Computed example of a mutant assay.
Amino acid sequence: MIRFKQIVMGACCCIFLSCGKHVNKRISLGVVSGWAEGEAMTLVAQEALNRAGYHVVLQKAAPNLLFASMDNGDTDAYMDVWLPKTHGDKVARFSKIHSTGIIYEGALLGLVVPDYVTINSIDELNKHKNQFGGRMIGIERGSGIAAATDRVLKEYNLDYVQLNSSTVAMISELQKAVREKRWIIVTGWKPHWMFARFDLKFLKDPKQVYGEAERIEAYVREGLDKEFPEVYGFFQQISFDDETMSDLLAKMEESKNQKETAKQWVDEHQDLVNTWFRKQKK
């Protein structure tokens, strides 16, 4: 009987200690639902870090809330920060978060129309108000692109309204309009799988309200480098070029199970993923 108790107690201790170790390696990543590139990169990071022995959970919220959560120490990292313009003012409000480096360069955002639309610049829009119905289909309020589009309306004195909804709803409206060959304006960004699915173009922005090409960076909370140096180093190293980003987004868009697709993508790109686990930069 005593021997049985010793075995049970030993088993419980092992379970407790292993669970404690698991909890101690918990990493929380912020992600915005519907933002294709952010979701794709975050799922890949989750899979890579899970394989390295971490328990990675996703925190879904708007960018402002994720920045505040990192600043409070509740979220460890967020991988979809567009700089210098889109999120520049937002991250500047918080003192306990910082960038670990560039994940993707050459990102664009602005007003997007189907390629069959015959105008090419924002300053042509008022002349074609009736063809567009006087509206632009936007995404969630609180996003950087929604705020930038408000400035575009003022700077160009456009007689339009921005209709804000979810990213999924915006894509649905775009898909329907393209199918019917209707003129439509959406607020869009690249990288995004919609540019592979549809023939689209950005309207020129002569006043540079949206800014020029941006970079996507990873941001982390204060202290992550001391608590999880391997994870911190991972976010210093992770990056995607045009080819790998396009490949990832195309596979995610076609996927019926994005977590499984992330696993397959990591399997197929293991050599690249291994480079993300180099030692932390000084």
Rank of each mutant, 00 (worst) to 15 (best):
K226S: 10
V209T: 08
K21M: 02
Y210D: 09
N120E: 12
I171C: 08
G53I: 01
S165D: 15
K190T: 14
M9D: 04
D205I: 02
H55K: 13
G106Y: 07
L43C: 05
D199T: 14
M41P: 02
V32Q: 01
E227R: 07
V161E: 11
G106E: 02
M170P: 08
Q175M: 08
Y78M: 02
G101Q: 02
V44K: 00
F4K: 11
H269N: 13
D159Q: 13
N157C: 10
K181D: 09
N64C: 04
R141F: 15
T261N: 04
G88S: 04
S18I: 07
V32S: 01
K190W: 15
I185A: 10
T275Q: 15
H87G: 01
V8A: 05
I137C: 08
A177N: 10
R278H: 13
I184A: 12
I185P: 11
S33H: 07
N24Y: 05
R93P: 04
M79D: 05
Q237Y: 10
Q236D: 06
V117I: 06
T86P: 02
F277V: 00
D247C: 07
M1K: 02
D123W: 03
E227A: 15
T75H: 07
A107H: 08
I145F: 14
G101A: 02
T42A: 00
P206H: 10
G133S: 11
E105K: 12
K282E: 12
K251M: 12
S143H: 15
T42F: 01
V8H: 02
I216Q: 10
E268F: 03
S69A: 14
A48P: 00
E37H: 05
I2W: 04
V231N: 06
N50I: 03
Q131F: 06
H87P: 00
I15F: 03
A107N: 03
I185K: 12
L224H: 05
L200M: 03
R221C: 14
L83N: 07
S69T: 03
E105S: 15
E230N: 07
V81E: 04
Y104F: 15
S18N: 10
A148C: 09
K207P: 06
F16L: 14
F67L: 09
R51A: 01
M1H: 09
E155G: 06
V31P: 01
D74N: 08
K226L: 10
I7N: 01
I97P: 03
Q6I: 01
M41H: 02
K5G: 06
A148E: 15
M41R: 03
K127Q: 14
K25Y: 02
D115F: 10
D80G: 04
M1P: 07
Q237D: 12
E230A: 12
N130M: 10
G101N: 04
V91M: 14
D89V: 08
S143A: 14
F202N: 09
K190D: 13
V91S: 05
I122Q: 06
T100W: 01
A48T: 00
F202G: 00
Q162P: 08
Q236V: 08
H98A: 09
T118V: 15
K90L: 13
